[in-house]
Design a protein around this nucleic acid. Structure first.
Lengths: 187, 187
DNA sequence: TAGTCCATGTAAGATGTTACATGATTCA
DNA sequence: TGAATCATGTAACATCTTACATGGACTA
């Protein structure tokens, strides 16, 4: 069975933004080019085909608006299936693989969590994220310790940069958990 | 003209590792699955076709080794063109776009710099990287300040996480520059 | 002899990049 | 009238993911 069972990060970003409010392709492009979500491509060649696919899969529904003078716009809104699919994605378990290879997707999931997942989801997510980070970082440290002498200076520095980034993320999960009102003593 | 003029991040990772020493596809897969370069796919469906393309472009050269009992291995080494292409990529200017969308590629470039670029390249790179980071972070802060009240809590936290990550990276560039023996007073 | 590791590869499919195309409207 | 912005789209192309395929060698 060679049928992908999940949408891309871009697709979920689109779903989240459309869920916030109905938007056109152009709105979404502008959002990507003018906010910290600039890490997503605002290319029409990425956005419009992605929207078409989402519509074909019944996750969004578009309709024309012959608005105030300007060219016709196609405004999209989420369907019930779209909302269900987004929630399913958002509340998936936090896997090691995500921490190691798709941290950006993990943060995307979290970014919309207060809005669209049930109460408590954000805190559960943060705990799971914290756990995975805390389990992964020692592997990096161990590698550094064993190999530091054989690594070129810039290689070692690059690894140290990665470790520091993960540690920053770890600290962030702790302060974020506190924000949700539960320190929940971790050691 | 719709011909891509550059290789993928994976392709450059392969070139860098092969430059360090001649390796087979299997060696490269194992390296990706067992070191902090785990952020690259160790899938044969990614590695072997990438190696074939590199060979077709004349950047690597493979030859069979009927080694000690095991199945034949195909060992690759870099050609002169491969080394030139890698260096060109490595010493490109640090662009805003890289900082915002391809930080991982930027760090990959740096990771091999002491080995394969001329002396001074690493420090130049760090300075340029520092400059771009220092210019970009205030944009994120500004956005946060203007929008914090209208953002859902998890959205705001996600943005704060991103800012902290960039700031960690910024601090790292400073300590890394010191490692290269020049504090070079920046204010 | 059955399972695991070594080792290389291909096929189908989806997605993303870059570039091109179109046309209306606003503004200088 | 020409340029910029609004707004949507397509075409060609390269790459990656997932899954499948093959076969030798070691080992329990």
């Amino acid at each position: 069975m060679i049928t992908s069972n999940s949408n891309s990060a871009l697709a979920f970003a689109l779903l989240g933004l459309i869920w916030q409010k109905a938007r056109s392709g152009y709105d979404l492009r502008k959002f990507f080019s003018s906010t910290p979500m600039v890490s997503f491509s605002d290319s029409p060649g990425a956005i419009y085909p992605a929207l078409r696919r989402l519509e074909q899969r019944g996750l969004v529904l578009g309709h024309m608006v012959e608005g105030s003078g300007l060219r016709r716009r196609r405004i999209f809104e989420l369907t019930a299936r779209g909302r269900a699919e987004f929630r399913r994605w958002q509340t998936q378990p936090v896997m090691r693989h995500d921490v190691v290879r798709n941290m950006d997707v993990l943060m995307l999931r979290f970014a919309f969590m207060d809005q669209f997942a049930e109460k408590g989801a954000s805190l559960r997510f943060l705990k799971a994220f914290h756990k995975e980070l805390a389990a992964y970082i020692p592997n990096l440290r161990k590698y550094l310790k064993s190999n530091r002498e054989y690594m070129p200076q810039s290689g070692r520095l690059a690894l140290e940069s990665g470790i520091q980034t993960y540690e920053t993320q770890l600290r962030w999960t702790k302060t974020a958990m506190r924000t949700y009102g539960q320190s929940k003593g971790e050691g």
